[in-house]
């Protein structure tokens, strides 16, 4: 079953420097890859680079910024193939940003 792991954090609140953090993510991705659970995963550029699109009544509106101003911003994601929620949760706990941010774990909708 596929799970989306959405990584949220307060930008700038990282507990280590960026180089170290990226290294830690590298280790995580490798481990997940070796375990055969990694489908994909990417880090996102900061929230200041976001643009939001809404189409209402045929009209497209484009605004600067994320869909909502939140304290913790979406910083990246992983798409994993896991047996069950507990397995997905144990991977989520290993994501470096889980130490200071939040990782949301959501099952991907499965169509029959």
């Amino acid at each position: 079953m596929q799970y989306m792991l959405l990584i949220y954090g307060v930008e700038g609140a990282e507990d280590v420097d960026m180089d170290t953090l990226l290294e830690q993510y590298g280790v995580f991705s490798e481990e997940a890859g070796k375990a055969g659970v990694l489908i994909s995963g990417e880090g996102l550029d900061p929230v200041s680079t976001a643009t939001s699109v809404r189409v209402r009544n045929g009209e497209t509106s484009i605004t600067d910024g994320p869909f909502a101003e939140t304290k913790e911003a979406l910083g990246g994601y992983y798409l994993l193939e896991c047996e069950n929620l507990d397995e997905a949760l144990s991977w989520a706990a290993k994501i470096p940003s889980a130490r200071y941010g939040t990782v949301e774990v959501r099952p991907v909708m499965a169509y029959e």
Binding site: M1, E83, N84, L85, D86, V105, P107
Partner: peptide, 10 residues
């Protein structure tokens, strides 16, 4: 839906 497993945690 979230596939919470029916097991004693490991």
């Amino acid at each position: 839906r979230a596939a919470i497993p029916y097991q004693i945690p490991q």
